[in-house]
Design a protein around this nucleic acid. Sequence first.
RNA 1: GCCGAAGUGGUGGAAUUGGUAGACGCGCUGGCUUCAGGAGCCAGUGGGUGCAAGCCCGUGGGGGUUCGAGUCCCCCCUUCGGCACCA
Length: 824
Amino acid sequence: MTILDERYDATATEKKWQARWEEQGTNSPDLANGQRPYYQLMMFPYPSAEGLHIGNLYAFTGADIHGRFQRMQGRTVFEPMGFDAFGIHSENYALKVGGHPMRLIPQNIANFQRQMRSAGLMLDWTRQLATTDPRYYKWTQWVFLQLLEKGLAYKKKAAVNWCPFDKTVLANEQVIAGACERCGTQVEQRFLEQWFFRITDYAKRLLDNLDALDWSESTKASQRNWIGRSEGAEIIFGTAGVGRRASDESLTGHEPPTDLPHAPRPTLDVRVFTTRPDTIFGATYLVLAPEHPLVGEVTTDDQRAAVNAYLDRTAKQDLISRKISTEKTGVFTGAHAINPATHKPIPIWIADYVLMEYGTGAIMAVPAHDERDHEFARKFGLPIVEVVGGGDVANEAYSGDGVLVNSGHFNGLPAKEANARIIEALAGQGAAKAVVNYRLHDWCISRQRYWGPPIPVIYCDSCGMQAVPEKDLPVMLPDVEDFRPDDTGVSPLARHEAWYRVPCPECGAMARRETDVSDTFLDSAWYFLRYPSAGRDDVPFDAALTKRWLPVDSYIGGNEHAVLHLLYSRFVTMVLHDMGYLDFEEPYKKFRAHGMIIREGAKMSKTKGNVVNPDQYIVDWGADVFRLYLMFIGPYEEGGDFRDRSISGVKRFLDRLWSTVDAVRTDGEPDDAVMRKLHQTIKKVGDDTPRLGYNTAIAAMMEYMNTLRANERTPHRAEVEPMAQLIAPYAPHMAEELWSRFGHSESVFDSGWPIADPAMLVDDAVEIAVQVNGKMRGRITLGRTADEKAALAAAMSDASIVKFITGPPKKVVFVPGRMLNVVL
RNA sequence: GCCGAAGUGGUGGAAUUGGUAGACGCGCUGGCUUCAGGAGCCAGUGGGUGCAAGCCCGUGGGGGUUCGAGUCCCCCCUUCGGCACCA
């Protein structure tokens, strides 16, 4: 039978099926009634002016194959798409080209939609969203109000990067080696009032829940790292002076010191955090962060000038270069504190290597056992006292294991054990408690920019800060031509009085809107909740649809969002759960990170001019070939190297599939060996596809094609027809075309998945390896059920093997169907 | 420095629990077809050695466990990605 009679025309066929899918609503599931719902999410893109990047398409294709496969397993699959269109990128681009983001973004979105349609993705375009749409950001503002109501949103002064030349706030990624990326001026830090979310309240839950999530291990590791849990103790060091602790019982039996050099003030407590309480006997000085609130109080009059000079200097430095500067700096306050273990006075220093954001903003320095303290102590001539044996602390800090020395009656204890004992002893005196610290910081959501959702808050002189009432949402972002950031350090919206002057919702008096907008990460922290309800203006998300479709079954995206986006969306989900809006607290049941595509061995970049433009490849090769090639490059979770000349391999494969179907016969019986290979291929593709083993699934299909066409045979229809289904997730257009030409009227995606018959998965005869003393010496062909005896007999009758068997076998190892090893 | 991933032919990569290393594709070589081809088809293709059957060597390096190691254990080297003064 000849069912095809022309060469495969990818362009026409792809257009035809894309139009048909759209007409018949093939990709728009019935969300209210569809059985066995499966929510396949992909990270929505930022719609840049350059159009879809190959990385986007790689991500989407892999997710699409996963979704299409699930559909062929009988699930109702929802694969939505949207646009993450707010943010500094769009704003900067608009400034650069002299356009307006409100005009540019819709063009970019239209271009992205065109590109994604041409790529043959199973996207439900009836439920798309854009974060810049007031009908969307109305609910982003609603999310903010929920956090505000729950007490999880607060305002405080915080440092930002400030370029004194451009007179503008810079994002961290705009600061290159301490300088403004635009003008090269040294960046300073400035303190502005900013909105924060109390994500640190959720640190423990965000960390603990990870264990149970089905996520890429590397992603979980990044999250754990970012949250950064440390166990340790907070220890109180009383400042020297009034001897409150002088009457306390000594840990060591030493007499309290009597000769304090500076003791001018009443006792102040300095609380420090340490993960190494076992080294407290080696704490020879304290360090406060420059921003520490006690700095002013402990500084003695004779040191005040030096301290002020130091504070000035550090305040001028930007946030980035302070972190990367290698040289330690610091200044002595003139004050001393009492080490609660040794009861000796130790000097209190100020240094910017101690960060106010972490722990208590103060540390006990143990130069013998901490690299940073060691460097500092050497530079400023502070004493280094070894308290854990095993290192050479005069030369370098020793942080390894060992036994305590110079530590009073704790001497001789292993450091790990001493840790608990010392905390206990200090706790008994009220001088310490065990604590857990996280490096996670609260989430600063304020942006002193234009292109974002206004933070829905109003300041009234008499009523104070007021939330915008829900009925007044959205707070529309005004369409103004003047949105360039300026030298005031506040949002450009602060220049538009007509916009920010509003009556107080409480008393009606003239009040002022918040002029900062929120972080784009807030837009993307809840978008997956919106998709099923996209288009609804009365609720952020419909309760019944949410119950049916969430949490997300499968989320696939890049590792560049492994930390912030995933963490923030988990946090927002937890908060909405705690407030009773959601019945789950983790948004994504399964997450997989795809790899990165490089090109001809190098990272793609505009400056190198080696960026792949998907449009051109789709025109030249067709979407099916392009999809198949992308997935064949390497393991999906690892990415790989895009090489133009390799595309022809998958193109040939699809052409061969097409011409094989063209020549198929219906008379006679299918070949048994070929049918066994078919069933093995069904099994392999069906196993590999759901675990994202796309490259090996494609290889298996290629291998089967080689079998089908070997020896110039004419394949039987039964041998070929299931190939249309196997290839469908990968090459959806050609699959539909083949399937319809085989006489089916329904979409191949509603045809189910072919079933691998277990009886067909084994071959009648198997070739097994024969080893002598573990060395490969030959191969023999045996019946499937052959036992060790038969295998040995066959081996002994093979001359090329027998010549190595020079004596009686001591032992024979037989693995049925695999190998035989004769040990002499 | 810390965390994570990975080192296999000329090349991208296979090898699911230790069991025939190099599947599949690219490239290359030879042949057929063609006016021609950056097209198609057939065969070959890890290295060394040999007329050949064959033999020896081979998964970053060195040890070990095992009848048997790319796979497991120990030490070392290299590359990539992320975090980076977090006490």
